[in-house]
Design a binder for these strands. Structure first.
Length: 597
RNA sequence: GGCUUCGUAGUUCAAUGGAUAGAAUAGUGGUUUCCUAAACCGUAGAUACAGGUUCGAUUCCUGUCGAAGCUACCA
């Protein structure tokens, strides 16, 4: 049920009655700007062709019609071509009476759509620990998954580990050359960090080698070709593909370190996966598909036996799909993984959560799959998100200029602890309860900070400025929820009692009350739009509006100390519903809300 | 060079072609014997530039300037 359904119909009817013709377009209402009276606004300009009148007069025609011929409208005003409508209190109250009864009013029943969607994230390389970019990836992926579930779809979380190839070989080589047998146990480092340290060590050594070669008069390109380290990396990669026992043993050891380390990070974030894919498993399958493509004439082979696809007819370029030495490249294994996903699951849609630096790659991948005749190619979607940038520019693992995920997470929880203690809000909490609260607030602040930004846009993070806990933030919303819970506790009513008491829709509503009902009525549409656009930021900003509006309501009006019992009950119900919307909305962002803070 | 994306208050973010471009934060001035002040209320401050389409442009088109990404037998 939508509060505007009846009004939309009434506007259509009014235009037909007034001007004798049906309006062809869609009737769109916008929220009335706060400097004008009213809740919803109809722009008169689209109706001018039918009315043949000035915008002001057209608006007045429709306004008067609605006022006199329906019971939907309390009053209206017209500013320029804008018809500002105040809906009748009874409309708001009737609508509210409907939604207060349903706890899941904006959430579809589980798996009711019958569609299955796979969401793949964060798909890290196993040669370095997670950083801030991965966090944006994880937050987006997990939130989109929750939104899809709320829309009634079945969701399969998948993750692809890029666990072989050049970058992994670099870490392995550095460990062999400079490691002296170091292990997570011997160094006390988290496994993924230890592996990452060797990746950085390789990069530094490689840079030094190139610089020295260049001093002998070689060009950058010539130096790279002559690099001994690069040669050894290639050698390791080839040895790995040839199943060299020693290399495989080293590889497995370092991969295990990585997975143990990253599992801890996942745990602290509550990240879970239904199905893991490993490049080391699928890369050979990719080679099969390359053969198939050659047979079908989709690919072609050069004299050096490297395999390519010509995409110039599609406005793209020639793309390598298999190296001359027979080893796989990135896209080879992505072709294989796509095939595997299709073989393993019945999926109606497959979403890859990957940064926008790979826009071109996914364009090519989807096109190749289509040319190979894979019917599922049309159901693949690249959820492309913007980079997280530092004030100094892009983060680069090679140069060690990254914001480490583990550091950031623990730092946020620490700040939450300090702030909570400063505000004296740890009273009455058990040690366990306090610890949990710090985690909820710290992670909530971090998640919200990232999710409130439109995924498509790049965003900036300044490590020198701490993430705020006041204003347009996660903790502000969490605080609002806790505040409402406190009111509800003091009301002495149970949730069941609050939901089931009937209100007499006769009493007059305060503007702050209609504002809240109006906002609540948007929830379902917001979730739908967030699904279609894969954009959790819509929900983040919507929930903020509710929290802000509730705080204004709370300051201006008293909930519990009003004389009129019915009015008090209504305000308790309204508070309950706002808290529920906040909780459900935040759950779609994978952010918990505490009952006390 | 080519392709793609992006330039909004000091800063970080909003705005299906609609009104006087919203928030937050940092400034600045207030609110607490009153349901949680992680709150609320004032005040001040922005569409890179130049054209075009439109009743109306931050939004669409063209150009200029600026930034980022891709353009690897890296992933």
């Amino acid at each position: 049920m939508n509060i505007l359904t009846d009004l939309t119909k009434a506007v259509k009817a009014s235009v037909k009655d007034l001007y004798g013709k049906d309006f062809e377009g869609e009737i769109v209402f916008q929220k009335t700007r706060k400097e004008f009276e009213g809740e919803v606004t109809l722009v008169a300009f689209p109706f001018l062709k039918l009315s043949g009148k000035k915008p002001e007069d057209t608006g007045a025609d429709i306004g008067n019609y609605l006022l006199t011929k329906t019971k939907l409208v309390k009053k209206f005003n017209i500013v320029k071509g804008f018809l500002n409508i105040s809906m009748a209190d009874s409309e708001w109250l009737n609508y509210f009476g409907e939604i207060i009864k349903e706890d899941a009013y904006a959430i579809e029943k589980r798996e009711s759509s019958g569609l299955s969607v796979m969401v793949e994230y964060p798909s890290p390389n196993t040669n370095k620990p997670l950083h801030l970019g991965h966090l944006r990836n994880i937050f987006l992926g997990s939130s989109v998954a929750e939104i899809l579930k709320a829309r009634g779809h079945k969701v399969i979380h998948s993750c692809l580990y890029n666990d072989r190839g050049t970058n992994i070989s670099k870490s392995m080589l550095a460990w062999k050359l400079y490691g002296n047998g170091a292990t997570p146990q011997s160094t006390g480092l988290k496994g993924d960090h230890l592996v990452g340290d060797f990746y950085v060590k390789y990069s530094a050594a490689y840079k030094k080698e190139i610089d020295e070669l260049k001093k002998t008069g070689l060009s950058e390109e010539e130096a790279e070709k002559k690099s001994e380290l690069a040669r050894q990396v290639t050698e390791l990669t080839v040895a790995w593909e040839n199943n060299d026992t020693e290399v495989r043993k080293l590889w497995k050891m370092m991969n295990d370190w990585f997975h143990e380390g990253v599992a801890e990070t996942y745990k602290s974030l509550g990240t879970k996966t239904d199905k893991n894919y490993y490049e080391s498993d699928v890369y050979n399958l990719g080679k099969e598909t390359v053969k198939e493509g050659l047979q079908k004439g989709v690919f072609y082979q050069k004299e050096d036996s490297s395999v390519w696809i010509d995409l110039t007819a599609d406005g793209l370029d020639h793309k390598l799909v298999l190296r001359s030495n027979g080893t796989s490249v990135y896209i080879t294994q992505d072709i294989a993984t796509a095939n595997e996903k299709e073989r393993n699951f019945k999926i109606d849609k497959s979403i890859y959560v990957v940064g926008n630096e790979q826009d071109y790659h996914f364009k090519v991948l989807f096109l190749i799959l289509k040319k190979l005749g894979r019917t599922y190619a049309d159901n693949l979607y690249h959820l492309s998100y913007g980079m997280v940038e530092l004030p100094t520019g892009k983060m680069k693992s090679r140069e060690g200029t990254v914001v480490d995920a583990d550091d950031l997470i623990s730092g946020m929880i620490d700040t939450a602890k300090k702030t909570t203690q400063q505000l004296g809000k740890t009273e009455g909490l058990t040690e366990e309860g306090a610890k949990n609260l710090f985690k909820i607030i710290g992670l909530g602040a971090l998640r919200y900070f990232i999710l409130k930004v439109d995924p498509k846009k790049k965003m900036l993070f300044d490590p020198n400025e701490s993430i705020d806990f006041n204003g347009h933030t996660g903790p502000f919303i969490q605080y609002t929820h806790a505040r409402i819970q406190s009111v509800l506790r003091k009301s002495g009513l149970t949730a069941e009692e609050i939901k089931n008491k009937k209100i007499n829709p006769a009493h007059a509503l305060h503007q702050k009350e209609t504002d809240l009902i109006h906002l609540l009525s948007d929830f379902k549409n917001i979730i739908a739009e967030a699904e279609y656009t894969y954009n959790p930021a819509l929900i983040a900003n919507y929930i903020y509006e509710i929290a802000k509006a509730y705080n204004q309501f709370y300051h201006e009006l008293s909930v519990l100390s009003v004389e009129n019992e019915e009015q008090k009950l209504f305000r308790v119900q309204l508070s309950y519903k706002c808290a529920l919307a906040v909780k459900q909305g935040m759950a779609l962002l994978c952010i918990e809300v505490p009952d006390k803070m």
